[in-house]
Amino acid sequence: MPKTPTTNPGTNRTGLQASPMDAKDLEQIAGKGPSPDCEGLELNTLRGRYAKEMNTIGSVPPPGSMKGMATTGMEMLKGHKPTVFIDKLGERLAFERTGVRMYEALLIKHDALGSWDGGPTRQDLVELHNDELEHFNLVKETMKRLGADPTSMTPSADMTAVEAMGPAKVITDLRTTMPQALHAILVLEDTDVEGWKLLIELADSIGQNSLAERFREAEQVEERHQQKVRQWLSSAVLADAQNELGTQGRA
């Protein structure tokens, strides 16, 4: 069924202008004068107290049991706190794995709805999917070599999964248009690039230069993803503004 772009005017009822009579009554009780000073609110004092009192979300598992500590990989990290590296490797592992699932979801949307001039082709999306898979495998193998457990969920992996929940909801919502989903995946690609940059910096700082080099390759690939997604997204929005997007991509 062809879909009209969601940017076409419709029956949106959310704003005050949609209810001119009721809105007038409602505005009688609206606040007057400046809003409260946020910093002075009890709300923030209370949150500050919780921040001091609450436990952290959890810890990094000990590297592959005590046996893992003795592996050649772990020897490589001697003199440093290995769990910091493991935590961040766990983060990239989880993120790339979710990335694989996100591009699979985008492929479904693409195949169902099509694309537009300047939008992603199927081949483009397959390529990005395969890159995420390759990066996942790179991190998995690195963790194994270090004697870390790639099946564990590290604290940074957990946090990054919470961060990804919003974009993932938009991408897997089959009511959303391809440009809406691309906006969501751009959030993930931006985060991914930053994640790799930090991991490279960390690897360099603990003398893992050859690993840093491999991660740099991955980071450059992710930067290309970022640029591509940004271009696809802007081509859709600009075409829509010229009334040229049509029903493709469900703008």
Binding site: R97, R101, V126, E127, H129, L133, K140, T151
Partner: peptide, 16 residues
């Protein structure tokens, strides 16, 4: 499978 089924996933073919 340990670490999800993505651990055994093969790259997708570019053409259907």
């Amino acid at each position: 499978r340990p670490g999800t089924e993505v651990t055994a996933e093969q790259p997708l073919r570019k053409a259907l």
